[in-house]
Each structure stands twice: as structure tokens, then as C-alpha cells.
Design a protein around this nucleic acid. Structure first.
Ligand SMILES: [Mn+2]
Ligand SMILES: [Mn+2]
Ligand SMILES: [Zn+2]
Ligand SMILES: [Zn+2]
Lengths: 138, 138
DNA sequence: ACACTACATTAGAATCATTATAAATTATAA
DNA sequence: TTATAATTTATAATGATTCTAATGTAGTGT
């Protein structure tokens, strides 16, 4: 249970004004032990339930995009209809459970080293993402 | 320059009726030496230009989805606004040039082996996709 | 405390890729 | 040829995301 002050500082230190909406979203996203994955609609639901205040959808999008730009969140690529975000911003990869539509972290020791041997002149690597799609056995 | 008969057989052999729309799309997708990547809107444009006949957008979607289900096409995951397809259906990975919004194949020798050491009980791996995002240097 | 201004929130509209609908057409088998 | 199911099509619907423009608010300076 973190103090709001922690989030106010976090926001201020990256040039974002600590509004009550942003603090509320911070509490839902960052006031917990484990990182997790969510979609905008997940977040929307959690804000309606766990929290009481009503935050407009536009603000939810604005905030999540601001947080992503500030490096508080990672955007995860699944060619699904919706975008997923990750509060784990470290370099890591994912299982995507197609049955449950859920992302699961792959830690460094869950995956061998990825070596990219091809180099394109004039280009630099921005990120390397591994997505392992899984489904129910049988 | 393949004969239409090739495509008629291809379609029939997988239980798809060889309509003129499907044959036309086959010609654009499979009547060439190199494989390539495309979006639905790319294909729509090519059908309008290179080919003369008008094929409705619904049919383009239907056909591409049918071809994907039959294994003629691979769907590529980029969290972009649109879905990309690949006429190279072999197991391979990609660069995605964020500047040009273009996919580039990574061959087996361009990438070290991917080892997944984590196993989830009751789940099986459906696919492993590596996406290397690149941008212009400097 | 007050006023100013840039930043932020908001409801609602717009966008746009994709999917659904339902009527007309066509391929194929009987 | 006729019957049937598959396919095409125009068009509407969907749904995530972005845009707009009006209103509200946080921080700064007086
Ligand atoms: Mn899709
Ligand atoms: Mn996006
Ligand atoms: Zn993760
Ligand atoms: Zn490819």
C-alpha cells in the first residue's frame, strides 16, 4: 500500500502534473507487488469497480500513452483486436495463451539467448520481441 | 507466368471453389518468384491497378482468411493498425522497419536457435514469433 | 490570495480496419 | 437441367482508437 506521495513524485519527476486521475491510475497499476498485463478495457473495468471515481475513456487513453512514453509501461504486440500493456518494463518476452487471451512473462532463464546475425546498413535495432503462442493441449 | 490451371487445382485440392475472384487473387499473390508481405489495403490497391476486375472488399477479406486457414498465407503480428500477411509460409522471423512500415524476412541463418525452456502444463506451443523492430540509424 | 497560462480532462464525434448481414449470383453435383 | 450449397457483393454494424473543442485545473508569478 504505497503512499500517494510516491506517485505524485513519480509523475512530477517526469514532467507530468499529478492530477487525481493520473494518481488513481498509478494506484491501480503500480501499487502492487507483481507486474501484470492489461488492455485498456481491463483498466476501464478496474477503474469502475475497484476505484469509485469516474475517469473518462479519453483520459484513460491519454494517461496510458503518457505513461508509455515516459517508460512506465511497455506496449505488447499481439495481432489481436486490442493493444496490451505491461507494467513490467524490463526486457522480456511472452507466452500468449490463445484460449484465455492472457499474456504470461518469460524470464531470461526461460528463453535462450536471441542472436541476430543480420545487419541492415543505416538501420538500428529498436527492440526484439519474442511471442510464443500457446493453446490448450490435446 | 503460371497457368490459371495451377491455381484452379490448388483451390480445388483444398476444397475451395475456383471462382474468378479467387483465381485473380492467386495470380497476384502466388504468380511470382519471390514471396512478399502485404496488408489488405495493399492487396486492394494492387487488384485495382494491376488487375482490372473489381473485387469487393468483403471478398478480399473472405479470400485472404480462407487462404490463411488453408495455409497459403501466414498472418504476421505487429501491433500496428493493420494486419500483415506473408506469402512465405515457412517458419521464419522478421525485421519490421518502423520508418518504412515494411517487413523483412529473417532467414534461419540470420537468427540463432530459439530455445524455450519453460513449459506450461496442459498447454502446447502453437507458434514462436520473433519480431525485431528497426529504425533509421543515428 | 489573485490572475494567468499552459496543461489536462471530458463528452461526444470521427476514423478506420474489420466483421456481419442478407440478398443476388455462381459452381457443382444429381 | 435443376437443385443445392458455396460464394460474392453492397452495405451496415462493430469496436478500438483518435480527434475536437469546450471546460477545468495545477503551477507560476504578482
Ligand atoms: Mn486479426
Ligand atoms: Mn497502437
Ligand atoms: Zn510481460
Ligand atoms: Zn516473411
Amino acid at each position: 500500500m504505497k503512499n500517494n506521495h510516491v506517485f505524485i513524485e513519480k509523475l512530477r519527476s517526469s514532467g507530468l502534473r499529478p492530477t487525481k486521475q493520473r494518481i488513481e491510475i498509478c494506484k491501480l497499476l503500480f501499487d502492487r507487488k507483481d507486474t501484470f498485463h492489461f488492455s485498456i478495457s481491463d483498466l476501464e473495468n478496474n477503474l469502475e469497480n475497484l476505484s469509485n471515481k469516474k475517469i473518462s475513456l479519453a483520459t484513460i487513453y491519454n494517461t496510458i500513452h503518457a505513461f508509455r512514453e515516459k517508460g512506465y509501461l511497455k506496449e505488447i504486440s499481439i495481432n489481436s483486436d486490442k493493444t496490451y500493456f505491461d507494467t513490467n518494463t524490463s526486457d522480456h518476452h511472452h507466452f500468449f495463451d490463445e484460449s484465455k487471451k492472457k499474456l504470461i512473462d518469460l524470464n531470461d532463464n526461460d528463453l535462450g539467448k536471441i542472436k541476430i546475425k543480420k545487419i541492415l546498413p543505416g538501420k538500428k535495432i529498436k527492440s526484439v520481441e519474442v511471442l510464443v503462442r500457446i493453446t490448450n493441449d490435446k
